Simulated assay, not measured.
Amino acid sequence: MNKYVALLRGINVSGQKIIKMDALKSIFEALAFQNVKTYIQSGNVIFEASVTEPELLAESIEKQLRVELGYEITVVVKTLSELEEVIQHNPFTENEASEGKLYVSFLSKEPVAEDLAALLSVQNGVDEIRALEREVYILCRQGYGKSQFSNNFIEKKLRVPATTRNWQTVNKLANM
């Protein structure tokens, strides 16, 4: 069995797409996943599966969620080793990261190079972004709620669905 983390986009945010974590866990167990655990209410699920392709898992989960809940939810699936690499390859130094709060936007697929270049060219003098393959790291110096680099902004610039987590959550998921 392989260990995975599923990151669901936009659930339990501002009273929209509400789902209880025990119900979410049951949906994953119905897909025959093993050792299913959820972490906080924002749609983080750790599980084991025999499938070795994260993209196939994401499609299967999205389809089951659509059937069970009646609406679309974007799901990004990472292997545990991929999540650990996200942490190891953090492009911000410890000193830089101490200037604010760090977030990671997980992209559902690799963006087109021109779109990524356009995103990275946006500067606002307060917050900073850096990207590696399918992740965009965001250093928010005045808080994520005030940042120009919201999940929606990144999705529009890259034309790729994404879901964002704070650095503490990313590390917690890797350690579960």
Rank of each mutant, 00 (worst) to 15 (best):
I138K: 02
S50L: 15
E48A: 12
E155H: 13
E82L: 10
K146A: 15
I138H: 05
R130D: 14
A6Y: 05
T74L: 02
T169N: 02
A162T: 14
N44D: 01
A162F: 13
R165F: 01
L57E: 01
L65C: 11
E94L: 06
I19A: 07
L69W: 01
Q142M: 05
E59H: 09
A118W: 04
C140H: 02
N2M: 11
T79I: 02
R165K: 11
K37G: 02
I18H: 07
K157A: 10
Y71T: 13
A97H: 00
R130Y: 13
Y4T: 09
D115F: 04
Q142C: 05
E135R: 11
K17S: 15
V86D: 03
K37V: 08
H89C: 06
I11M: 02
K157G: 00
A6G: 05
K63F: 05
V51H: 03
K20M: 09
I61Y: 00
G143C: 08
A6T: 03
L120Y: 05
E59N: 12
E72D: 15
Y144N: 08
D22V: 10
V136E: 03
K146M: 09
Y39T: 00
W167S: 08
I27W: 02
I129K: 07
K25P: 00
K25V: 03
V45F: 01
R130F: 15
Q123S: 12
A97K: 12
T38M: 04
C140P: 00
S42N: 11
V67F: 11
E96H: 03
S150C: 10
N35Y: 12
I61C: 01
G125R: 07
E29N: 06
G145A: 10
F33C: 03
Q142H: 10
P111R: 04
T74S: 07
E110P: 06
A49I: 06
E68P: 00
S150W: 06
E135C: 12
I40H: 07
E53Q: 14
Q41M: 08
R130M: 15
I61T: 01
V51S: 11
E48N: 10
G145N: 09
S60K: 13
K17W: 10
L80F: 02
L102D: 10
V86G: 07
V104R: 03
Q148R: 15
L69I: 08
R141E: 02
Q34M: 12
C140E: 08
S98V: 04
F153R: 07
S60Y: 01
V122A: 04
E99Q: 13
N151I: 07
K3L: 10
D127K: 12
A174P: 14
I40L: 14
V160W: 10
Q148P: 00
E94N: 09
E59P: 14
V136C: 11
V5L: 04
E96V: 08
K3C: 05
T52F: 00
V86M: 02
V67D: 12
V45M: 01
I61Q: 00
T38W: 01
I46T: 04
A174Y: 03
K78A: 05
